[in-house]
């Protein structure tokens, strides 16, 4: 079993293994036909599997070990990037990366959550779970962006804000709340992209935006499927059922008007063609920024405010 593939990807993994083996054969001319046939078969199989993914399978894709993380995107998505550190008060939270960047020549302030791939990286970035100083660093950078009139681009990829003793002591709640409050009226365009996992308040604290985009197989939820299952079913293994109930996939969230744009992923997900995914993301961001940069502050804030006030389904 190939550990870089999920359960439901195993049939694809087998075919990919065969293709890989053929690639190692010296005389490629002899096997060209066989190779093409296998590739077609693999594509067809992937299409078939991906046309009927369950919400739980999508949740697994959103957290796929080979999925791109924030730092993997920076080189291709932006022309340049200079990291800026620290909240100027307590420390530099490595779960949130921020800095000045350019995209197609346009200046932006970039802020993104970073999970980390190897064990060492995961520990360094705290598995992408920010502490209050991370949110405060993000807010500091957003305020700077507002001052110099440059748009903000954020990437969301977190299981949630870190539930630790120090985080609580330093006001995790207040840090998140403050970002919601300030972002909702920040006088510069904000574009947020959920690139993997949008975990609750810890995600929203970087995602109050003029445009919220989601990669196709990302998830965004008030609580993780496992957390929901352990509370409502007293059984974390019922996460698959909870995932369906929570409606945490991009098409569902778009339908409810909670996100604005779905960014299509390469066949089989981002991890099957990372370079294509990076380019798609780059053009999606550029497209939104070009529209938003044309709006006056008043137009921008009016539209953002109206959108936020429109969230909710109730009778009165």
């Amino acid at each position: 079993m190939n550990l870089d593939f999920l359960d439901f990807e195993q049939p694809i993994a087998e075919l990919e293994g065969k293709i890989q083996a053929l690639c190692n054969i010296k005389d490629q001319a002899d096997i060209a036909d066989e190779m093409q046939a296998l590739k077609d078969k693999s594509d067809a199989l992937t299409k078939k599997i991906f046309s009927s993914l369950s919400d739980w399978q999508i949740s697994q894709l959103a957290r796929h070990p080979q999925r791109l993380y924030t730092l993997d995107y920076l080189d291709t998505v932006f022309d340049e990037f200079t990291e800026l550190h620290g909240d100027r008060a307590f420390s530099d939270d490595k779960a949130i990366i921020g800095g000045l960047a350019r995209i197609e020549g346009m200046p932006v302030m970039f802020i993104g959550q970073q999970k980390g791939r190897t064990t060492e990286e995961k520990l360094h970035h705290n598995f992408g779970m920010p502490r209050p100083e991370g949110y405060r660093k993000a807010l500091r950078l957003m305020r700077m962006a507002e001052k110099f009139e440059i748009p903000v681009v954020t990437f969301v990829d977190t299981p949630g804000a870190y539930p630790g003793i120090g985080a609580e002591e330093r006001g995790q709640s207040e840090a998140i709340a403050r970002n919601l409050y300030e972002m909702s009226v920040l006088k510069t365009p904000i574009v947020s992209v959920v690139i993997g996992e949008g975990g609750s308040g810890g995600a929203l604290a970087l995602a109050v935006a003029d445009r919220v985009m989601m990669f196709e197989y990302s998830i965004y939820s008030v609580i993780s499927p496992e957390g929901c299952a352990s509370i409502l079913y007293k059984d974390a293994t019922k996460a698959n059922i909870a995932a369906e109930q929570l409606k945490l996939t991009s098409p569902n969230l778009k339908k409810f008007g909670l996100i604005d744009v779905i960014i299509e992923e390469p066949l089989g997900g981002i991890h099957r063609d990372p370079e294509a995914a990076k380019k798609t993301l780059r053009s999606a961001i550029v497209k939104e920024l070009k529209t938003l940069n044309n709006l006056t502050h008043n137009q921008l804030l009016k539209a953002r405010g109206d959108k936020i006030l429109g969230f909710g389904e109730f009778k009165s």
Partner: peptide, 12 residues
């Protein structure tokens, strides 16, 4: 929880 992400948006 039972209103999913719509509930989260009430924070904003």
């Amino acid at each position: 929880m039972q209103e999913g992400l719509i509930s989260l948006m009430q924070m904003a």
